[in-house]
């Protein structure tokens, strides 16, 4: 049984229908990349899965149970953690406090404050700084670390490379194998197709709120993926 099974969900912001019947699955421990142009519905999809935005239709099965409609605060307790777009650190909290707050759901597992510092050694000297005093890359590390602190079974990462220099992005992506090694399933939204393909087991391409193409990352026809990305196959 897949850890996450999204069945035909739709969601809208007011009059704008952001998701139109999306289905996808993610097996325990795998990394699934979601790609697509701006406005394709990637962020909305993540928000629907983590409970921040209610889906208007469809089912979201997590570990076999329908979680659609449950609030985000409960889903974290069940093991779904979100690294939100734009990092969203708590500005009045220090780096360390931001990490500690991640452990609020009190889930047991391998991730502790020390483990996160091991994963991102750059943060050690920043422990007592406030979130907004950090560079973009450091902020992103805190945001990922904060999500890991809840020892999630599924971690959702929304554009973790956004606005960062390539060298910093490399540094952050180097942490992914360690995260997967702990058995965590990773669902990641990424604009950069090459990077998405290189770090993931499966890839799903969204276009205008629906799944345009999905496949195994290593085997997928790159041109078909590019066409799907830009909607050229229509």
């Amino acid at each position: 049984m897949a850890l996450l099974d999204v069945e035909n969900i739709s969601a809208r912001y007011g009059l704008f229908q952001a998701l139109r019947g999306i289905s996808l699955t993610a097996e325990e421990g795998e990394t699934l990349a979601i790609v697509g142009a701006n406005g394709a519905g990637k962020t909305t999809l993540l928000r629907a899965i983590c409970g921040a935005l209610p889906a208007s239709e469809g089912r979201i099965l997590f570990d076999g149970e329908d979680i659609a409609g449950q609030p985000a605060s409960q889903l974290v307790q069940r093991g779904i953690a979100m690294v939100p777009e734009g990092r969203r650190l708590f500005p009045s909290l220090t780096v360390e406090d931001n990490l500690i707050i991640g452990s609020y759901p009190k889930r047991k597992g391998v991730w502790t404050k020390d483990k996160v510092y091991e994963l991102f050694p750059e943060l050690v000297k920043r422990r007592m700084n406030r979130g907004l005093d950090l560079s973009g890359g450091e902020q992103q590390m805190v945001a990922i670390g904060r999500a890991l602190m809840s020892n999630p079974r599924l971690i959702l990462m929304d554009e973790i490379s956004l606005g960062l220099a390539p060298i910093v992005v490399n540094q952050i992506y180097r942490s992914l194998p360690d995260i997967s090694a702990a058995g965590t399933t990773v669902l990641l939204v990424e604009q950069d197709l090459n990077r998405a393909l290189s770090v993931s087991d499966h890839v799903t391409c969204l276009l205008e709120g629906h799944v345009e193409l999905a496949g195994v990352s290593r085997e997928i026809d790159r041109q078909a993926l590019i066409d799907a990305y830009f909607g050229a196959s229509q």
Binding site: P71, A72, S73, M82, P84, R88, S92, L93, I100
Partner: peptide, 24 residues
Amino acid sequence: TLLGRAFRATSDDPNTAELMGIDG
């Protein structure tokens, strides 16, 4: 305390606090 930090996190950004499992 953890609860105190949750108070501050909610004060900063209740929506993101929700993502940390904090019921505002």
